[in-house]
């Protein structure tokens, strides 16, 4: 069986100009002075791994190791400088909850807008609308513009929209628990339900307990390179040793 996600020798380089040039005048000045020097920054170096169907794979590593960049390359937001990524299935990108929210629009309008951004169809959203509202517990606030919501309500609504579907591939960047203690429990339960429901999951976490509980395999990134890729226990142990 072919893997759901294949990451083949992916390198990601960013150009870091002395100062980011974003005006024509600056561009011309820099060009004339011959100072168009770019410092290259390699966020990912030759990263390869794959995720099988129905598998839960964790991404661990220190801050700046390239975890978020990897997720962005897989979800298509960034084009890799070298190498390629093959994804077989629909991705529900949950890189940041509620990134498509518009604060001038009501909760109801935002459910449809955000749902559309996540790639849901109209019929699906209509049928799941009540479920989303109920799960988010925003109640009568659903017809109020988002700017009047509390921050907890916004994250709850975002979580409810993002997890109402059972996607083929779920990409999660540390969004496992949001809201207050009761909602955290609920959201955690929902995540577990998704992960055990046959969905392929790729997720980033710093919580080693969570990783050990959920993942079948783990990718350990260090300075943009794959330090280790394998069974959860061995990678986690090595990572914890390295940290010390």
């Amino acid at each position: 069986m072919q893997p759901m996600i294949e990451v083949n020798n992916v390198s990601m380089r960013f150009r870091m100009a002395n100062d980011r040039i974003n005006s024509i005048k600056e561009y011309m000045v820099q060009l004339l002075r011959g100072k168009m020097k770019y410092k290259e920054f390699e966020a990912l170096k030759n990263v390869s791994f794959n995720v099988q169907r129905g598998e839960v794979v964790g991404l661990i590593g220190h801050n700046g190791a390239g975890k978020s960049t990897t997720l962005k390359v897989i979800s298509g937001v960034l084009q890799p400088s070298e190498g390629n990524v093959i994804v077989r299935g629909n991705i529900a990108p949950m890189l940041e909850l509620g990134s498509g929210f518009d604060y001038d629009m009501t909760g109801k309008e935002n459910i449809f807008l955000n749902g559309a951004i996540l790639g849901y169809s109209e019929e699906f959203l209509n049928s799941k609308y009540d479920e989303i509202v109920a799960f988010s517990e925003v109640g009568e606030f659903i017809n109020v513009p988002l700017r009047n919501y509390s921050s907890g309500m916004i994250t709850r609504l975002a979580f409810s929209i993002a997890t109402v579907i059972e996607p083929e591939i779920l990409i999660v960047d540390e969004v496992l628990s949001v809201g207050d203690a009761t909602f955290q429990k609920k959201s955690h339960a929902r995540m577990m339900e998704l992960m055990h429901g046959g969905t392929t999951v790729l997720f980033v976490s710093h919580n080693m307990k969570q990783i050990r509980n959920m993942c079948s395999r783990v990718v350990w990134l260090e300075n943009g390179q794959v330090q280790m890729f394998g069974e959860t226990e061995s990678v986690c142990a090595a990572y914890e040793n390295y940290k010390r």
Binding site: D104, E109, A116, Y120
Partner: peptide, 21 residues
Amino acid sequence: SRYDFLLRQLVSREFNKKYKR
């Protein structure tokens, strides 16, 4: 076929927002 719903959502947002307040 995949993005017509999203497009409609974005258009209606664009349009409604202009005169929202």
